[in-house]
Amino acid sequence: MTAVTSAAFDGGFRQPVFDAQTTFRAIMDALARPGRRVICRPLATAPAPMSPLMAAVALTLVDPETPVWLDGALAASADVRGWFAFQTGAPMVDQPADAAFAFVVDPARMPPLSAFAQGTPEYPDRSTTLVVSAESVEDTGAVFTGPGIETSVLFDTRPAIPAFAEQWQANRALFPRGVDLLFVAADAIVGLPRSSRLRTG
């Protein structure tokens, strides 16, 4: 681990009120219309390996009231940790199950979805929202149906989450418990709420 550099203090929203609103509408759109690429210009920056759009998503949703979990690649950067502390004030947690938000830049090595907070039957909202990097989003691959989807939608992200189909079916089987995903590409967000069903066969 390295010492914090000045990068930790850069990269906040230039117009916090309006930039957060713009980014939020893209996030909301993405979650309300699963599988759709919602274009969102990144309005913030953060130290590598965190992408500018992931930084904007973090600034929009995270604050001292939301425990945050970072994957290994992010946690290894003192600048990223410093950036979260300075820009959001969010408490950092070691256990994925304690997180309100989890940020993942290395999906190939992330913990299973079941390791994150799943909510309770009475309070299924007490679950983790995962914000996951995607180098690319393709409109091929798995077929999803469910709320927010007119008929069905195809999409796939790279790099892939290991055994994603099985994991997602297990996540859906928990409904209303379960986690929600926000895939963040360079200039677009794709949402996958727990309500989305993966069509098989």
Binding site: M28, P124, P147, R194
Partner: peptide, 8 residues
């Protein structure tokens, strides 16, 4: 709102 959307 996001939780509400995810759990209709």
């Amino acid at each position: 709102i996001l939780k509400g959307i995810a759990i209709p």
